[in-house]
Design a protein around this nucleic acid. Structure first.
Length: 283
DNA sequence: GTCCAGGTTCGCA
DNA sequence: TGCGAACCTGGA
């Protein structure tokens, strides 16, 4: 057990905010999970975290952006009143940085599921592909090869529903080398999102989640029902309706700037604290 | 029993 | 292009 100095950091908000599903609560406030393939248990303490595990402190800091660049990014966000209110509502919220495949697989499973159920599916996958009876920390996320080798029926039994077909097909593309996350590195975010959408079950929203939460693309902007509602409620200009996804992305870029992924994190979290979004049909 | 959840895909104008 | 319906499932 060691100690990590982390003032102004809200572990609970960060891990429960739906960015990552690689963590599960084990008792009030206490979480266990994985940074990449490294198992960690974290307990919040005044001014920081108690850390169980062999994780390198710098790795932990990078994962939660507990470093100088975070303050600089916050400084660079636009002085937008709605965004400032959202930031004030949860100043300790941070962006995390997961690995490509667990992040992608989890978000393929996320459609029309609330966060706790997505997390359950994620951990079902870890447990289903581990040796019988294995427990934390011996629960690595299954590889694309492992998931591709399973059947769709196997996956459905883990609570995936119709998403099983998508996850299985996406895993096959990766296992067969027909899709490689490395090819996303040096291309613009919009192009990277288009390439990610060649994976079954990955549409615009999920692609942007993957780019923000695994790719570290701060200009990725997941447009879910919450964000669409926020944009239309707070930023809509009279007489102009934003309907098309491309229009919404352009509008978000203008309104929230190149770090709009960070802005999204706060806006989304603040909106969720406020209650359910209105039913607004499919998007 | 009914409704809904951080969406994607498919078919059809 | 753009719209609407279908899709699994668990929890309120």
């Amino acid at each position: 057990m060691h100690w990590l100095d982390a003032p102004d950091f809200d572990l609970e908000a960060t891990l429960a905010s739906g960015q990552t599903f690689c963590w599960e609560p084990i008792s009030p406030g206490r979480w266990q999970g994985f940074i990449g393939s490294t198992p960690v248990r974290l307990t919040p303490c005044p001014g920081g975290l108690a850390v169980e595990g062999t994780v390198n402190p710098q790795t932990l800091r990078d994962y939660f952006h507990l470093n100088d660049s975070w303050a600089a990014w916050l400084q660079a966000l636009p002085p937008d009143p709605v965004l400032q209110a959202a930031r004030a509502a949860c100043p300790g919220l941070r962006l995390i940085r997961d690995e490509w495949w667990p992040c992608t697989a989890s978000f393929i499973c996320s459609s029309l599921k609330p966060v706790p159920l997505i997390r359950r599916i994620h951990w079902n996958l870890r447990r289903a592909f581990a040796p019988q009876g294995a427990q934390f920390p011996d629960l690595p996320f299954p590889t694309p090869q492992q998931i591709a080798a399973a059947t769709e029926t196997d996956l459905r039994a883990l609570g995936l529903g119709y998403r099983a077909r998508h996850l299985h097909a996406a895993a096959r593309l990766l296992a067969e080398g027909r899709f490689d996350f490395a090819h996303l590195q040096d291309i613009p975010t919009a192009e990277a999102a288009r390439r990610l959408q060649t994976l079954p079950g990955v549409g615009d929203k999920v692609a942007h989640c993957i780019l923000l939460y695994a790719g570290g693309r701060l200009d990725a902007f997941p447009l879910d029902v919450w964000m669409i509602r926020i944009l239309s409620q707070h930023y809509r200009r009279p007489g102009r309706r934003l309907r098309r996804i491309a229009d919404l992305h352009r509008f978000a870029a203008r309104q929230l700037g190149p770090l709009r992924g960070i802005a999204q994190l706060f806006l989304f979290h603040a909106a969720r604290q406020g209650g359910r979004p209105q039913a607004s049909g499919n998007h």
